[in-house]
Design a protein around this nucleic acid. Structure first.
Lengths: 366, 366
DNA sequence: AATTGGTTCTGAACCGTTACGGTCAATCCA
DNA sequence: TGGATTGACCGTAACGGTTCAGAACCAATT
């Protein structure tokens, strides 16, 4: 019997109503408003539903009628695996998922085909709103999201007119960190950063490229460094900046190698993420450079592994950021005045920063 | 002008058609079948759409008509944060996300309210199928998923009639690992496992509880250990098994402490996950026990941190598992013969297993 | 001149549900 | 006893699309 229901046309609210001789409204009420019909009738409805193999109101039809999908769309950067391997992104995802769960909303990961610029998936997503996390400024998917008539929250992205936003003060935070290095005496530094645009450029970065970076976060952090070092008379255009497309420890190591090969006299490597900094640490170790005596290394994010090795870095509340994005989206949106949440960051002194060795020390030991 | 569209009732396919003086079909075709109308008319349609602020066909209405939601539902265990912190679960999630992305399907994380047994979220999810990952056998959400008339794949779960499944041979794999320990001479062992049921039990586990565990994976692994040690005459009912509700390194450490306090003579700690094993290693270190000379510790999963410390364990292809689940679901399902994929595992010798010390060695050194 | 074929567009049916505004009888209150 | 209230249920009209079988038209072929 149960088998046959799979063969024949599946039951609907209407067919169930017909079978019972009641109106569709009543069947609907049996599921959604038990107080609107007698317990006895409701029991009959539910029992008949079971007998006919009716699985309950169709979620899509319900969504159409109620204009609620019960889900939040999440637009991540083009490479999904990136998000799953980056602790900061993961923390954000977790926070967002928690917020959604708390509100009983689903979280719909929008598929982004890395190959084609296929924006259709954004249009196809049946969601009540979008969260956009750290995509390039010119990402067509972002544009597609903004064209949809649903509330949106951007995170780790530049401001968008009429759209809520959550983030941190990337620029200020890294300026403060750089201030510490400056106070320690560092003037000759190198920078290692994540990818700045959608095209691949594993190597040195021109000032123009840094200024026009398509990733808000990286652009802001580089600008913060320019602020700090420029402020003490360092010629920012001469500071070596090495970019890596892949965000991995190995990338950080190879970037450090490239940078130290090109300029062995840098006293500090400032990395725009902890992951990259961990790679830089590995490369320093490989070269027999002691950290922090011979070389200062700093990161950004405050991930667990960084804490484990005592990295000097900036901690940002990634989970809280995700949660805030979710709350912002799920709270009744106010289109007249887009809200903006900037979360606090915290400098983590760590143990990988120290005053630079003097030239004499370099050659003759401390 | 653009503002006003937000105020008045938003444009629909029908209103757009009316404005243009064409049929709804034609507008629909402009979006979905460009070859069905003249380029000129299509241009006009799209331009008018822009002018009227029409964001393109509504995804929900389209889903209702086409009976395709373009998304896959994922049912995870009740505690979302758990999934985001467990590398094995994360690997599965990544693999599944990749499979979905490759097929242009969204991935809809179903919210599971840990408080109430609220199954409504399962009924509300507009998806074309479900993946159920490692939930308790008696989880009402699982039952709700099975009641929905969509294809389903279970992973790390017991077989369900008529439902595709993907997993590994947990029982066989851990039996093999135990065989190595037995060959090394271990007979007096302790076991540390993850939670076995939905209720909290941080402490020792009775044979009944182990046998009736609600989590398939844990049950299978314990059964595998019973097979192996029972096979060489060890009285399984006397083997101490300690359970922890939270799956964390700290839990592993406290479980190890509890176990070693209760039975200081165990020569090996067999853990049902690497995370727990890492905790056991930490506790051993804290007690000044050398691993593997004084104590053998083994894990399960083959996570990156385990490899880093040279843990003796079993590696399972978690990413591949997720990907396989996605492929199985997205491939045209064959309801007549549910498919089952069992992925291979690999024993990782590592460096945390060695022959037990003899009693003399214990007291007088090797 | 009739047939064929191709393009372009239309009309009507359908997808499965819920919101809204009722009706009708039974019950309550003074 | 009569008017108001309450409980239980119903009919209709959306919700916003897609689809399929044609209609209308024109050009090319027989």
């Amino acid at each position: 019997m149960a088998r046959s229901t799979h063969v024949r046309r599946p039951a609907t609210l209407a067919s169930l109503a017909a079978e019972l001789g009641v109106s569709r409204t009543t069947v609907s009420n049996a599921y959604n408003r038990p107080d609107q019909l007698s317990p006895e009738l409701r029991r009959r409805v539910l029992e008949t539903a079971r007998r006919l193999g009716y699985p309950g109101p169709d979620p899509v039809a319900r969504s159409l009628r109620t204009r609620k999908a019960g889900a939040v769309g999440l637009l991540l950067t083009e490479n999904l695996s990136y998000a799953f391997r980056d602790p900061a992104a993961l923390g954000f995802l977790e926070g967002l998922a928690l917020a959604c769960e708390g509100a009983g909303q689903g979280l719909h990961l929008v598929p982004v085909n890395p190959e084609r610029e296929d924006v259709a998936s954004v249009h196809r997503a049946g969601v009540d709103g979008f969260v956009v996390y750290s995509v390039p400024d010119d990402d067509p998917h972002l544009a597609a999201v903004l064209s949809r008539p649903v509330p949106t929250v951007v995170a780790d992205q530049p401001r968008v007119d009429g759209v809520d936003r959550v983030g941190i003060d990337d620029r200020g935070a890294i300026t403060a960190l750089a201030g510490r290095l400056i106070a320690l005496g560092h003037r000759r530094v190198g920078v290692i950063c994540m990818r700045l645009a959608r095209d691949r450029n594993d190597g040195f970065v021109t000032v123009e490229r840094a200024d026009s970076a398509h990733f808000h976060v990286q652009r802001a952090r580089l600008a913060g460094l320019a602020d700090a070092f420029g402020g003490v008379g360092v010629d920012w255009s001469r500071v070596p900046v090495v970019e890596r497309f892949d965000h991995s420890v190995a990338s950080g190591a190879s970037a450090a190698a490239q940078l130290l090969d090109a300029d062995p006299h840098v006293t500090a490597l400032v990395c725009t993420s902890d992951i990259l900094a961990l790679g830089a640490l590995a490369e320093a170790r490989r070269r027999g450079l002691r950290v922090p005596q011979d070389l200062t290394v700093t990161g950004f994010d405050g991930i667990a592994d960084a804490e484990r090795v005592g990295l000097t870095t900036v901690r940002q509340p990634v989970l809280e950021k995700g949660r805030a994005a979710g709350k912002l989206l799920l709270a009744s949106p106010d289109p007249t005045r887009p809200r903006e949440i900037t979360l606090d960051t915290e400098f983590v002194p760590g143990a990988t920063a120290a005053p630079p060795r003097t030239a004499e020390e370099r050659w003759f030991g401390p």
